[in-house]
Nucleic acid binder design. Structure first.
Lengths: 136, 136
DNA sequence: GGTGAAAATGAAAATCGTTTTCATTTAGCT
DNA sequence: AGCTAAATGAAAACGATTTTCATTTTCACC
């Protein structure tokens, strides 16, 4: 356990939101100026590999890292301000587990994401009306 | 409506799986050798913009395009062979809609993805046991 | 407390999918 | 047919991710 790794791990698990490599890089850099970008990247990958986080893409080309808790949750993703709100997915996991079984899959994880606009963005009028109701 | 666009649209909507730009490019190219990559890319973006498809990322860095039907569905994604199986998500949309309302979001779409291993991959033993149960 | 092998780091470069640019062609309207 | 806006194709630009490699550090073992 190098001091760099310790700092990266600590910083990551203290976050209350999904960070990108750049974001975490800036954070650890404010504490230790000498840490390299690739070290941050490699350690985030490591955290994923050992199952403590997972990569999430919200469509803007930037990979973010979502700390995995024992509490199943999904994400509400605001198309306006890019805010991410987590919600409890207890009701959904059962359905998904059943679905996996029915399709002869072993379930190793899931992602549930709802895209939309939050109240603030609706109030600000930053709602792109060209967005169509979509269904995956 | 240019002939290139028509070919790209037709080809895309005939597909029964999610295609990447490269895949669709190869397909239309086997019919019209002169079509450019950027034309395929632009038309896929266009299809998304008008709400007939949506981009999906399954974590391998390649964006695929999922034709939108009126039938809500989720995806079972095999970590072994990368196969994607769709499943009906009727049971889940209600929960998600309710969740959106509770969080003051207007629901514009959703994604439900289950990662795991399909029966074939389990039989072939191509199951990476380092994969941990994960929960988003 | 040394010692050596394996692992981790930092800087830079490579990679590769995506996106833009721009000159040219084409479609669609009158 | 003539005009304008839109679409196309080739190439270049872009940018996040990933690899390379020389150097440093950790850690197990003596």
């Amino acid at each position: 356990m190098t001091p760099q790794r310790e700092l990266i791990f600590r910083s990551f698990f203290e976050m209350d939101k999904h960070v990108s490599v750049d974001e975490l890089y800036e954070i650890v850099r404010s504490i230790d100026r000498s840490i390299g970008y690739s070290t941050v990247w490699r350690n985030l990958k490591l955290i994923c590999r050992v199952g403590l986080a997972q990569e999430v893409s919200i469509g803007d080309g930037i990979t973010r890292y979502d700390r995995l808790t024992r509490i199943p949750h999904g994400h509400l993703f605001c198309l306006g301000c890019k805010k991410v709100v987590e919600f409890n997915a207890d009701q959904i996991v059962g359905v998904l587990a059943q679905t996996a079984i029915e399709n002869d899959f072993t379930n190793k994880g899931f992602k549930v994401e709802v895209q939309g606009f939050c109240g603030e963005c609706r109030a600000k009028g930053s709602v792109d009306s060209s967005e169509t109701e979509s269904v995956s």
